[in-house]
Design a protein around this nucleic acid. Structure first.
Lengths: 158, 158
DNA sequence: ATTTGTGCAAAGAGTTTGCAACCAT
DNA sequence: ATGGTTGCAAACTCTTTGCACAAAT
């Protein structure tokens, strides 16, 4: 863990970005977080629980800085709140619970086939894509069966 | 066009939602708009040009009402601004220009295959999905070649 | 020593809400 | 008539910015 932070520190230094206490704490959080899609205020709360005060503007600025340094990646879900994840080696997409917002990873990516379609059939130049599946995670399927049945009827595969 | 509005009116009446002047104007806009992914303030501006004043809160409330009536669909892109489109018969996804935000449709949908994977390999219950491809449309590829080359190098298929 | 980063306070954008007046049914 | 709807004003949430001070290199 400290090893990983040191590697990141060197990566940042090459872009003359300083490894401050604040950035270290934010990165440490991403490195330990299993659920690893974090909002600014989730980060603030998590750090507060470890008795680390940090201003929200600092967090926002650092998320942006770390994202443009290529260390974090900005992910926009459908609730209009900015979320970030560590840029990992492997490319993936998300399963997102509509009830609790918990996210799981899937390794499948439909992009290759579709990219071919877009490149050959349109004038569009694709550079990025997003594929997210929304639904209910194991826990929330149990909690809320009535509601889920309603929803499923109303908007199946919409 | 007036025929379509009348059909929609009946559809709304079944849910005891009144077809007000404001709702009619909003729907008329979606029915005539070729580019058909609209934000609240785009709607306000478009209506203002036709000398129809409408308060933003009215627009927000109606977009929400029409969406929960199943007439419109809420689409979240990656810029944290709420967009809506008419719920049409056919299922589609979008190509979105990073430069001008213009959107094109694609009919391809990767969901079927992946749904099978998720259903068989995970405990997740999928109900909705989003697949969007970002890049540069024909016009913006010309305008901005230098920038596009930079971007393409930096984040190819990220 | 220099350059970059922080906290605080204030401002901004997009969106939501309470309420009295209004309009569609 | 009456219950849903509107416009206005104000509030709210998330995010950004200016600035003086502090910390990292």
């Amino acid at each position: 863990m400290e090893k990983q932070l040191n590697l990141l520190k060197k990566e940042l230094q090459q872009k003359s970005i300083k490894m401050t206490r604040q950035r270290k704490e934010i990165l440490r959080l991403f490195l330990t977080q299993t659920h690893h899609l974090l909002t600014a205020s989730e980060i603030q709360q998590a750090l507060r629980q470890q008795d680390h005060q940090m201003d929200l503007s600092t967090i926002y600025r650092n998320l942006e800085t770390l994202a443009s340094a290529g260390v974090l990646r900005h992910i926009a879900l459908n609730d209009h709140i900015a979320r970030y994840e560590l840029v990992t080696a492997h490319h993936h997409h998300h399963l997102i619970c509509l009830e609790c917002n918990k996210t799981e990873l899937i390794d499948l990516c439909p992009f290759q086939e579709i990219n071919q379609y877009v490149t050959t059939q349109t004038d569009f130049l694709p550079t990025e894509h997003r594929f997210e599946i929304y639904g209910y995670c194991k826990d929330c399927q149990k909690i809320n069966n009535q509601t889920i049945d309603d929803i499923f009827q109303g908007r199946k595969h919409s």
